[in-house]
Design a protein around this nucleic acid. Structure first.
Lengths: 247, 247
DNA sequence: GCCTAGGTCCCGTTC
DNA sequence: GAACGGGGCCTAGGC
């Protein structure tokens, strides 16, 4: 059977398709790109995601996200893949000069992906044990606290003296933009709450850039250095972790 | 030949390897993750990049960037791929329960990837024709203007009245963080230059969020709405574009 | 749809 | 190596 027919049937059956092909690629949309002839890996997934990899590098050289529309065209022996995203007027065209390898099948993968160690876990540790993580007793007011046009504060506490405490958490080195992110929240709360409300702000991270420290001091904001390992220990104590983490 | 031997030889010869396999995946490093059995696409590139895709979605579910060290282990019939990044103590383990498909070869791809339409092009259009893009005559002082700990200003001009004009360019919707990015640069220059230097600041983008506009007004910064098409037209006039754009 | 914020972000560039 | 900023970022969550 002609290769193009096999390809059409695979796509029709919503299989995952993998091509190794000498091809050229054109993209036009938010930006424009051109990649002349070379051998690449082309993945077409059942949900319409198309990913093209060169033989080096982490990132795909060209792609379209899930929901794209893939059509095939035979232009005098050259197979053309047209991948469209109509809503945002984006188009990728892959011209296949030579197909080195073809694979297609339906892949079964229902497993759940579990992850630990993102910012959310650090946040949870702080909420569960403010004293252990930040060194003082704090009462939870809210998390993902909506501030309208100013965005969302990670956590808002009330301290032992009745001050509001706005907390911004970073899971890696906090830079100057994190300082200003926190300051936006403080300014907003101060503006909304009136000048009679006393507000503190704490930036929490495992490390801080020098300029972040300077900005914190200049803006009158506090900071706490926390370790992810410590957060992990606290989460382990306060709630039972999935078994594979406790080994 | 045993599959594991083929795999070892392919890696030894620095070929690109593609596996379709029923596998489980474990990752431990900056974060930790676990993915139980399912059918996935595993790409091992000649530069040590390893990318695992599920049959849906744009992003790889697990990965390691180029430079990783891949070793193979036979654990009583189960092939284990260990992918290490020693410098940052990261490890990914892929346990292959069933190999559905194997492909390997050296891929030839020397082509140059060309792209147009990123922020750099918008910046060039503004530098080449400030009057056309921003509506006033401006004299270039510098671009990628280093401000030490405050970062880099995209462009610095001097206007007809001798004021310094700091320009921050965004190729898509500018949000409130872009406003504060610009403000950081202005504050830094003001601080360094002394209060006798008069400084203006302009945020340039095709669109602005409402909160960005509010913040701009509050901070006393200017903004200009520009279209990427207009930038493209100006670049086309002022310098000859590569042929494939002019068609 | 827009907006906000995170990411095992990755990546290039600069110091 | 640290730090800064872009990305066709993508993705998730909220409105």
């Amino acid at each position: 059977m002609a290769m193009i027919e096999k390809l059409r049937q695979a796509l029709y059956r919503k299989e995952t398709v993998i091509l190794i092909a000498k091809c050229s690629i054109f993209y036009e949309g938010r930006a424009s790109s051109k990649l002349s002839e070379g051998e690449r890996i082309i993945i077409i997934k059942e949900d319409g995601a198309v990913i093209v990899h060169r033989p080096f590098g982490y990132e795909p050289v060209n792609y379209q996200p899930p929901g794209s529309i893939v059509t095939i065209e035979d232009d005098r022996g050259i197979i053309k893949l047209n991948i469209l995203r109509p809503r945002i007027h984006e188009k990728m065209v892959i011209e296949i000069k030579e197909l080195k390898h073809f694979y297609s099948s339906r892949l079964e993968d229902q497993a759940e992906f579990q992850m630990w160690g993102d910012e959310e876990d650090l946040k949870q540790a702080i909420i569960l044990d403010p004293a252990g993580m930040l060194g003082e007793e704090l009462q939870l007011v809210g998390s993902e606290f909506s501030l309208g046009s100013a965005g969302y504060a990670d956590i808002v506490f009330r301290d032992i003296n009745g001050n509001l405490v706005v907390v911004e958490v970073k899971k890696k080195t906090a830079d100057v933009s994190a300082v200003y992110q926190l300051k936006r929240y403080v300014d907003k709360i101060r503006k909304e709450g009136g000048s009679n409300v006393s507000i503190r702000a704490i930036l929490v991270a495992p490390r801080f850039t020098q300029s972040a420290l300077v900005a914190l001091k200049r803006e009158g904001l506090e900071y706490r250095e926390v370790s992810l390992q410590h957060a992990r220990k606290i989460l382990k104590q306060k709630r039972s972790l999935p078994s594979f983490f406790t080994s």
